[in-house]
């Protein structure tokens, strides 16, 4: 299993796209820091906003960059790994060896989860650092719910928890994308399929809105105002998508 993980990890980084995405992403994060740096208010949505401080800076930074992760960088890396290698025939060289296909899928899933964690962690570190550089520190900070005030340590935990929830949403996206990549033939169609699934989720049920509007869901959930189920659909997507795709891979026609 360890060797499968390593081999897949090397293949991920061998694609220039991964490293270039990371560079572009860091550039976008820094630009967004500048953008937030000259603003004095952070907006949760069209109506509610609070003054930007060192304590809540990283949360608003995540809101600004979340669309790049959910709509561009995330899908590209996932589709390249789940569908691009299959479509291009590169996986044949791996499957020549007597490896378990179930484990191969699990290795890919774990590696991509680690990569996503890396992107989210970079945002968190830069956000906390730049926030304290550019914005004044305050003793008490409120978020979407004005009745709950947090101390600096409490605010740090609040941000960390929000980042953790966003990571869970990315994992749900990972499982859904894996299923889509198995169902659909080519990378381009997979990409379109993911956009369709994220937008279509809004129409199917409000509880699936987190796929596209992740940050707005997290803002409301953390303030205790989210009216739909949140954790159940997220974990449902993660485990159902993972299990279904894994079994599907096992029964798939690998002759291509």
């Amino acid at each position: 299993m360890m060797q499968l993980l390593q081999s897949d990890w090397q293949r991920i980084w061998k694609r220039k796209k991964t490293f270039v995405s990371l560079l572009i992403f860091v550039a976008i994060v820094l630009l967004d820091c500048l953008f937030l740096g000259v603003q004095s208010f952070g907006a949760f949505d069209n109506v509610s906003s609070v003054p930007l401080t060192a304590q809540n800076f990283s949360l608003f930074l995540l809101k600004e960059v979340s669309f790049f992760l959910v709509l561009i960088i995330g899908p590209i890396l996932m589709i390249d790994s789940f569908n691009g290698e299959y479509h291009g025939g590169q996986l044949r060289l791996v499957l020549i060896r007597p490896v378990s296909i179930l484990r191969l899928f699990a290795a890919k899933w774990i590696n991509l989860a680690v990569i996503m964690l890396l992107f989210v962690a970079v945002t968190f570190v830069i956000g906390e650092g730049v926030g304290h550089l550019l914005k004044p520190s305050v003793d008490s900070v409120v978020y979407l719910n004005p009745d709950r005030a947090y101390s600096p340590a409490g605010a740090f935990m609040y941000n960390l928890e929000s980042y953790g929830l966003f990571m869970l949403i990315l994992l749900a996206q990972l499982s859904v994308t894996a299923a889509l990549c198995t169902l659909l033939p080519s990378p381009i169609i997979c990409y379109l399929g993911w956009i369709g699934a994220a937008v279509g989720g809004l129409y199917v049920s409000d509880a699936l809105g987190f796929l596209l509007m992740g940050m707005s869901t997290i803002f409301q959930w953390m303030a205790g105002r989210y009216v739909h189920a949140f954790l159940l659909p997220v974990f449902g997507c993660i485990f159902l998508g993972f299990a279904v795709t894994m079994l599907w891979w096992n029964r798939r026609n690998w002759v291509k």
Binding site: F68, L71, I72, P75, I188
Partner: peptide, 15 residues
């Protein structure tokens, strides 16, 4: 060089 890169850059341009 690959279609995923083209789609990603195109979406990036739109965003």
């Amino acid at each position: 060089r690959s279609s995923t890169a083209a789609i990603g850059l195109g979406m990036g341009f739109l965003l």
